[in-house]
């Protein structure tokens, strides 16, 4: 757990991520998740020093291969890599060149020929990281693949919650928004249920993934039910760019029925945390007063992102190149 004055038993059961890649939360055990969070605490301290650098990944090459635009996640990874003294390389590929030019497989193989130690991949297709992991020797870190998973986001969300609430087990956590298309949702559901939280998901029925209850969550389209006595409320972006088809009539109507306003928040616990993976659509899934209000930890999430990503990079870099996941 998070207490720092105690010395941690060095014979702890899990002291490594015994896997080559981080493709998703689905494959992680609760112990591995706790390991990442514990390591992230130490990493967070590095960011408070005058010299925000440690030599842990010195001489390692990390490529940030982003097929989708992203400032926040890419910057966060870049800072994390540099704080660990790794050599970073950013490749941003516009969607048009994907259509016209090299396949993902060929791009990756060409990169691989230059021996990067790790590739951080963000891509519009679910399963792109799995595909790369089969082709490349480098460690692959999933920075978001299609609608599938965004594991470092879920890890930093959990870290942020754990900082305040000390634990995740037993907390009522409500996730509200475009559930169908959200990779953040899937990663969070896996992580929070593995660590024993009581997860409620909420949105219009048109945006429910099939068989959502089979994921071990309570699903409802009534916002008040989800919000009542919640310890944490996570809002998901209404993903305008992924949508075609009539999921709901208008943004105005969405806000009226599902948007998080101060009034709606009152049903939650008095020390509720308001979270959002960003970027926000103010006035759609979240009212400005809530986003900027005292219960919002949205900026903490961003700060914690660097520490969590440092932890992931560090823990994966130590694994052997050819070692299979244990």
């Amino acid at each position: 757990m998070s207490s720092t004055s105690q010395e941690i038993d060095p014979k702890q059961a899990v002291t490594a991520l015994r896997r080559k890649d981080l493709l998703g939360i689905a494959e992680l055990s609760p112990e591995e998740i706790e390991l990442v969070l514990d390591t992230a605490e130490a990493m967070k301290e590095v960011g408070t020093r005058p010299i925000k650098k440690v030599p842990a990944l010195r001489g390692k090459t990390v490529v940030n291969l982003f097929f989708e635009p992203s400032t926040r996640t890419r910057t966060s990874f870049e800072i994390a890599e540099k704080r660990l003294s790794a050599d970073t390389l950013n490749i941003a590929i516009g969607t048009s060149s994907v259509v016209k030019g090299e396949t993902l497989a060929d791009t990756a193989l060409n990169l691989e020929a230059m021996s990067p130690d790790m590739i951080v991949l963000r891509h519009a297709s679910s399963g792109a990281c799995h595909m790369l992991s089969r082709i490349c020797r480098s460690a692959i870190i999933n920075a978001g693949d299609g609608m599938h998973e965004h594991p470092t986001q879920a890890l930093l969300d959990a870290f942020t919650i754990r900082e305040r609430k000390k634990k995740l087990a037993g907390l009522k956590i409500a996730i509200i928004g475009d559930l169908l298309h959200s990779r953040v949702l899937r990663s969070n559901i896996h992580l929070l249920t593995k660590l024993g939280a009581d997860v409620w998901v909420c949105g219009p029925p048109t945006l429910f993934p099939t068989d959502i209850r089979r994921f071990g969550v309570t699903a409802t389209s009534v916002v008040d039910e989800a919000v009542r006595n919640a310890d944490v409320i996570m809002l998901l972006r209404i993903q305008l760019e992924r949508m075609e088809g009539a999921y709901f009539p208008s943004l105005r109507e969405y806000f009226r029925v599902f948007g998080m306003t101060e009034e709606r928040m009152r049903l939650a616990k008095s020390d509720v945390m308001i979270m959002h993976p960003g970027p926000m659509n103010r006035g759609v899934e979240i009212a400005s007063e809530v986003a900027d209000g005292p219960y919002s930890v949205i900026l903490d999430q961003v700060a914690n992102g660097v520490a969590v990503r440092m932890a992931v990079l560090y823990l994966l870099a130590g694994g052997a190149e050819h070692e299979e996941a244990a």
């Binding site: 689905a26 679910s126 299609g146 609608m147 998973e149 959502i212």
Partner: peptide, 19 residues
């Protein structure tokens, strides 16, 4: 069918594939 690529069910939902 839309731009679905797999059977609309639990497995497609888990893997983030349009159903």
């Amino acid at each position: 069918k839309g731009d679905g690529v797999a059977h609309e069910g639990f497995h497609a939902a888990s893997l983030g594939l349009r159903g």
